[in-house]
Design a protein around this nucleic acid. Structure first.
Lengths: 105, 105
DNA sequence: CCAGCAATGTCTACATTGTAGAATAGCCTT
DNA sequence: AAGGCTATTCTACAATGTAGACATTGCTGG
């Protein structure tokens, strides 16, 4: 039993951004990934608090790195997180089946 | 301005359920649609409060019907709601591109 | 007719997510 | 050592998500 509570919309986005950023998945980069892919502005605070909450739920995990400049937290999606993503997508897909958006009012 | 704020996960689900229920899209039926398609339990209060909030944002609209049993509210997704759905999906698709959920651990 | 059941919808309250921006902290440059 | 980066943490509050009690209407059996 790993993930009963469904992912929120932003939580899902953040997790996907972490996956895309892969080896460079620290906060600032996750935000960048989010902004370039969605075209929206994302407040840095929104990213970190969501990251924190996802970590508390063990859907992602983080580790410190002291490479170049400042100390950073590197995030990765856990197996449990992957499952949650899959479940979220499956559930949504079930609802999108057969929906055609070109309907007029 | 019709839709700057992104849809929440549950909001999106409810709108899709309204579309599926089409001619019978009143509260109880929307809930049923949601439950059968997603396999989750959905509290009736959750459905109605979300429906109300979506209506306040003009993403759906409702009308009363006095058909058989009790008076019911029939919902439909507005054009603006359709646009919001499309935008939500587009944004998410952009993040899902190239993501492969194959798990190892 | 009236009590009560069934179906639908409303209301209230609270938990979780979403969002914003200021405050901190280490490093690098000058 | 002061100033400026980059990155993260903290604080606060708004919006969404969730639950369940309660009200309303009409129908039905007695």
């Amino acid at each position: 039993m790993s993930g009963d509570a469904p992912l929120g919309a932003f939580e899902e986005q953040v997790m996907l951004a972490v996956i895309h950023a892969s080896a460079d998945a620290f906060g600032m980069n996750v935000r960048r990934e989010l902004e370039t892919r969605t075209g929206r502005d994302v407040a840095i605070g929104a990213v970190y608090s969501t990251l924190d909450r996802l970590e508390a739920k063990r859907l992602i995990a983080s580790s410190r790195t002291r490479g170049g400049s400042a100390s950073r937290r590197l995030f990765r999606v856990t197996a449990s997180g992957m499952r949650a993503l899959a479940a979220t997508r499956a559930m949504r897909d079930a609802l999108w089946v057969g929906v055609n958006l070109s309907l007029s009012s």
